[in-house]
């Protein structure tokens, strides 16, 4: 790996808050280049001062603002909500804004673009294919057979147990870390990936949705849900505590007719809520 050290210019006049006394320097290796570059010559190294709470994203922003403005990174919320700062940090897909330098336990941090995504430049990857897979499973509630006996519009009521069926899967922020960690996605580009399949389960398990057959027929394909090898790496890297591997297995067990959908008819629910009010 060819390293090129770039040192900070004099920052004394720039009035940025200085880290507290317990700062130390780390070496930040950043993958540089576009889609056709040879990976072995593609890292630039920067010396960055960090303190206890510095995140990898803070270090990258420091490098971009003070050392080399040409570094391409993507971020927005800086609080693990938007899912745009995913990258491989010291070999593992993580969110840069959610990874503290101190928790990595080393003074050398290497940032690379997410695998399984086409590279745009440096640490920025193209999410088009990933979002296409997500859209394909129709990730929205569909109530195809509303109860005709109900003339008045009312809310879709759910019991806490019904919410629990899908709640953890609705925490997904579409950061793509699971997709980049999946060994099947690495070889099969038509495989929807753990994120889309977990979302298929999320809507399948939602008692307000009744497009079960429609959605299942989308994932029940030669390159669909059956190609999951249950490596489990998706669940390991998810920063939001979603367990996509679990969602996939739940959906598969339903398709194998081992479990039945724990759904109550919408009309029954509304009936109960009307009686209660």
């Amino acid at each position: 790996m060819k390293k090129k050290f770039l040192l900070a210019r004099d920052t004394s006049e720039i009035n940025l808050p200085r880290a507290s006394d317990d700062t130390s320097d780390i070496v930040l290796n950043i993958y540089r280049g576009g889609p056709n570059q040879k990976p072995e010559n593609s890292y630039d190294s920067y010396r960055v001062p960090v303190s206890r709470w510095t995140t990898v994203l803070d270090a990258l922003i420091y490098a971009k603002e003070r050392l080399d403005s040409s570094v391409a990174i993507r971020y927005s919320c800086r609080m693990a909500s938007c899912g745009s700062c995913g990258m491989k940090i010291n070999g593992i897909p993580r969110l840069a804004c959610y990874t503290k330098i101190s928790e990595l336990g080393t003074h050398t941090i290497t940032c690379e673009p997410l695998p399984n995504f086409p590279l745009i430049r440096d640490l920025v990857t193209d999410f088009q294919e990933f979002f296409d897979h997500h859209k394909k499973i129709q990730p929205y509630i569909q109530n195809l057979h509303p109860d005709p006996s109900i003339d008045k519009l009312s809310e879709f009521e759910q019991t806490p147990q019904q919410v629990d069926e899908f709640l953890q899967f609705s925490y997904c922020i579409k950061c793509g870390l699971c997709y980049s960690a999946c060994p099947t996605v690495a070889t099969d580009t038509k495989f929807p990936g753990p994120q889309a399949l977990a979302q298929a389960y999320r809507y399948f398990a939602d008692s307000r949705d009744d497009a079960v057959e429609k959605r299942l027929s989308i994932v029940d394909d030669k390159h669909g849900i059956w190609r999951c090898h249950f490596a489990g790496s998706c669940s390991k890297v998810c920063p939001k505590g979603v367990d996509p591997a679990l969602g996939i297995q739940m959906l598969r067990s339903h398709m194998m007719s081992i479990t039945k959908k724990p759904k109550k008819r919408l009309a029954e629910l509304r009936e109960t809520s009307r009686e209660g009010s």
């Binding site: 099947t184 070889t187 099969d188 580009t189 038509k190 030669k222 390159h223 059956w226 190609r227």
Partner: peptide, 14 residues
Amino acid sequence: RVMLLELRQDAKWE
């Protein structure tokens, strides 16, 4: 068949 399908993804190959 499953293994070969994962190798390449085009209609002819499938």
